[in-house]
Design a binder for these strands. Structure first.
Lengths: 136, 136
DNA sequence: TTCGTTGCAAACATTTTGCAGTTTC
DNA sequence: GAAACTGCAAAATGTTTGCAACGAA
């Protein structure tokens, strides 16, 4: 059976997350979807985000200035967080060494189910802006 | 010149942080210090934590269930966060490979100033509790 | 009709802040 | 006395939730 034609907010939210690399906050999701779905409510965004997390469809990858950021990419990867523009980028190329993960499991003594690695700094774009500001 | 004898809240808060491995929240700091400093206010705790962060004396190591957790240990190290009891533990023994850090710097294109690695799971203590609960 | 989904607004929890009083030097 | 620090309470921020209305099957 075909999914209903009628627009379901839940699907829209998940689609949005699956089609972005920006690691958006609930607020960003809301703001971006609102023009498309005028009667969308923040409560719905939060409720569905909570649901998706429970279902393992998305994960919370960071909290930047007190705001939770989400990612629909399920395989573990490394993030870079910019202190200036608050962007959260993927560092796909980086792979955590297997031996390192094993060592972690070994020494924590408990059960590890997730691993979150974030580098913080100034992204390329903001570095350039800073530089041109200084030289001016 | 000797530091004043008079009790300064700021010092007490920093001392507290330097003498714990628990990665406490603002609330925990407040609750633990309150009996010792009865007229301590939450505002003071928050204000000083913000200050310490700016000065680089402490850092925010994680946000667990929406609550920020602090650490006065400045050298970068790995953390383990328990999903059951919300404990944040150090994994001192683990050292991130130098080559890995270099690769990160390389591929992010910007400037890295910090790196935060956290494993999430169930700590030894809570694993035991779960086990004894199941077998009972 | 039944159950899941949602809008709305109120409630909540955490953190920040303005102001006036206090402490430090 | 000037400047820094703090208590208090109010405000701001981000998130959750109760309830009634709505939608899908």
């Amino acid at each position: 059976m075909q999914p209903t034609k009628h627009f379901r907010k839940r699907d829209a939210i998940l689609d949005y997350l699956r089609n972005t690399k920006a690691h958006p906050s609930a607020e960003t999701i809301f703001t971006d979807l609102k023009p498309v779905i005028p009667d969308l409510a923040m409560g719905t965004v939060y409720r569905n985000l909570t649901l998706f997390k429970e279902q393992g469809l998305i994960s919370s990858v960071a909290t930047v200035r007190g705001v939770e950021r989400f990612d629909a990419t399920t395989d573990p990867h490394v993030h870079f967080i910019c202190n200036y523009c608050d962007a959260v980028e993927d560092l796909h190329q980086l792979q955590m060494p297997e031996s390192f993960l094993n060592a972690a499991q070994e020494c924590c003594g408990g059960e590890i189910d997730r691993c979150e690695l974030s580098f913080t700094g100034v992204c390329r774009k903001c570095t350039n802006i800073k530089k041109s500001g200084e030289s001016a």
